[in-house]
Design a protein around this nucleic acid. Structure first.
Lengths: 203, 203
DNA sequence: GTTCTGCCATAACGATCGTTATGCTAGAGC
DNA sequence: GCTCTAGCATAACGATCGTTATGGCAGAAC
């Protein structure tokens, strides 16, 4: 099968190359040729694995979504304190950044501004939004806050804000100071302290 | 000069058309032809007024920056209470949205993900970041908060978060409920209540 | 050893991109 | 009236886009 047995499967190479280039330079600005060159893959091979550029874009977003969800699951499994679990979204994205090295902010946010309506990749942007909304809502409920929806919305606002600022920092490098994610986490913790209604342990 | 005296000057028409199309469909996805058609302008005329597409992009961002700054100035002039003035950034963007009708979130945030480094439009993204950072810092200082930098950063996070969520809502329409800007403003007000150190009036 | 499959390299396709060139017409200024 | 300017419409430029076609080669299957 693979001519070079030591290299990764061709589909993985394509997703790696496309993911990095789309994220670094933008989806529209990245040509198929650039992906092919970086992945060292022939054009016909790409179209044998994907329906086209749109399909490749959707596949990279799908993989990114699953990786991000897996990292969050992992972080969540390490926590037991309800408030810690609520704040884990910030730690998960920090860990995901360390692994994937995404300095340009949220890939889904960037894709949301680039993809037209009806693009096959849109479903993964929706999946990301849904995951964030529903999971934060559930965690807020488990933490015993008075209004889980309001807390989830608030945390989501801080989460989006941190990732959006990361995207802006790439353009305005050197102007901002510190890590937006750390600041957002601290602010969320402060804000939560006033929102969490201590629950009597049932036992 | 203008063949059709009733119409706006050709430069304004170009900026109007380009601003709307770039904002609605993205910068890279909008061809020069689409701008020319919408503005009813000949190709040579565009290149007589701007250095090219990049120059047109930069000019639309410049105009947007100045309009946004003017709206914020206007809102600020109506306020005297220091906390109200601090929260005016949310009201200004709400007013700007009503005037300009920008349902797809922050144009500068979108441009930050689309424009390559060194693009002539980057300076206006930097100007927007600087305006937000410095003005919020000054207003926080005037409000007598303990740590103006921390307060400015916090408000900036909520501001970015609200505009980022607007961008995502365009893709995930119908999933989110309510106005992110209103939620962010309320959350900012709550958060500020714990940050503002009441200052003794000097008189 | 032959066949078959997966992938390669190269080239070409039509379409669209940003940009420039060529005439032509309508109004302003003298 | 004449000139000059500003903008028009159309067409063409080379480049690049996403996509497809062609031919060849290496390793697996049998």
């Amino acid at each position: 099968m693979p001519r070079d047995a030591a290299s990764r499967p061709v589909r993985e190479r394509l997703l790696d190359a496309a993911g990095e280039l789309f994220y670094e330079y933008g989806i529209a600005a990245t040509g198929v040729d650039a992906v092919l060159t970086r992945a060292r893959v022939a054009p016909a091979t790409l179209y044998a694995h994907f329906s086209g550029k749109d399909g490749l874009v959707a596949a990279t977003l799908e993989r990114r979504f699953r990786q991000w969800q897996a990292v969050w699951d992992e972080v969540l499994d390490e926590r037991t304190d309800p408030v810690d679990r609520l704040l884990s979204v910030f730690d998960a994205v920090t860990r995901y950044r360390a692994v994937e090295g995404n300095r340009r902010g949220c890939a889904f946010l960037a894709a949301a501004t680039e993809l037209p309506p009806g693009h096959p990749g849109q479903q993964w942007l929706a999946a990301d939004s849904r995951l964030l909304t529903e999971r934060l809502h559930d965690l807020a409920g488990a933490a015993g806050v008075a209004d889980p929806t309001a807390v989830a919305d608030g945390l989501l606002a801080l989460y989006d804000g941190a990732l959006a600022r990361l995207a802006r920092q790439a353009a305005t490098s050197g102007l901002d100071t510190g890590d937006p994610l750390h600041r957002a986490r601290r602010m969320a913790a402060d804000w939560l302290a006033g929102q969490v209604r201590p629950v009597q342990p049932s036992g």
